[in-house]
């Protein structure tokens, strides 16, 4: 597998069952001396119900690509399609879990979760009831009336997950959501995510810099090249059976082999990234 697989993969998914498609997406930023292409000609398909991770060196534009899928950034060239329709404006089929804190600090945990329903017109009592259910589901049933600053980093991520999932989006976009957490909490959150995901198999696009996490969670792992003008250079299927337990998946046959194979490619990009940023 490798570069050849990219082209083959993008074409192989039937457009109708394709949740998100990035077609030759280029994203440019205006900088002091002209424009800078963060992402150039990136193509990727995520099938409905498929869990895909994007891994790449820091600063390669993974988050930028995710923002394009969310409709938060419009591509300079290429297009994004969602369930067969070309995306213009925000992607309303998607829920987005951000890397940094995105909860409303002036709302309690339950209000943070309920807000997605309230703005959609669900009445307050019903929204709160369902929010309480979701808080229980993510293990925070007794923390409904806490404000975000009274919760730990991991608990805030749980609230964030509930906030996004209560709207039942068909697509879940995640930008290094567990990045700021410690190793144990990450594993626990990973297992929680897989539990919730397996219940109704949404399409997931998960950005991370942690290859082990990517393999443990995903159906497919794609690798981005170092920026600028980064694009997708590798695409691997993860042949590990589900359900998985994050803390044990590393012992599975095939995990190490796959990890070594992907890491060989990723390492070169990581080094390239360091060389360019002068670090």
């Amino acid at each position: 597998m490798g570069e050849a697989a990219v082209a083959e993969k993008s074409g192989s998914i039937n457009p109708a069952s394709r949740a998100v498609g990035l077609n030759g997406v280029t994203i440019a930023f205006t900088v002091a001396n002209g424009t800078y292409n963060a992402v150039e000609q990136a193509s990727l398909s995520v099938a409905d119900g498929e869990f895909v991770s994007i891994v790449g060196p820091t600063g390669c534009g993974k988050s930028t690509l995710l923002n394009a899928a969310a409709g938060l950034i419009a591509p300079a060239a290429g297009s994004v399609d969602v369930f067969g329709r070309t995306l213009t404006g925000l992607n309303h089929d998607a829920g987005y879990l951000f890397q940094s804190d995105a909860l409303f600090p002036w709302k309690t945990a339950i209000d943070n979760v309920a807000i997605g329903l309230e703005i959609a017109g669900v009445d307050t009592a019903e929204a709160k009831r369902r929010a309480q259910e979701w808080l229980t589901r993510v293990g925070l049933g007794n923390f409904a009336n806490r404000y975000p600053h009274m919760l730990s980093g991991g608990q805030r991520k749980r609230v964030g997950l509930a906030q996004v999932l209560i709207r039942d989006p068909k697509i879940l976009l995640m930008d290094e959501p567990f990045g700021p957490l410690d190793a144990q909490t990450r594993q626990i959150m990973g297992n929680l995510l897989l539990d919730l995901w397996s219940a109704d198999k949404k399409a997931v696009l998960f950005v991370t810099h942690d290859l082990e996490e990517a393999i443990a969670l995903s159906d497919r792992v794609v690798i981005m090249s170092a920026g600028p003008a980064s694009h997708i250079i590798g695409d691997w299927k993860v042949p590990i059976a589900r359900p998985r337990d994050i803390s044990e998946v590393k012992l599975e046959k095939g995990f190490h082999e796959l990890h070594r194979e992907i890491w060989n490619m990723l390492k070169a990009e990581v080094l390239k990234g360091y060389a360019q940023s002068g670090a």
């Binding site: 925000l90 829920g95 951000f98 804190d101 997605g116 703005i119 959609a120 906030q163 996004v164």
Partner: peptide
């Protein structure tokens, strides 16, 4: 207002009026 919170509010489906009420005003 934190750009992340704003982006989150928009992704949760808030329109301009709801953004005012739920994000800008409390901030």
């Amino acid at each position: 207002v934190s750009p992340t919170i704003l982006a989150n509010a928009r992704m949760l489906g808030m329109n301009e009026r709801q953004l005012m009420r739920n994000v800008y005003w409390p901030s």
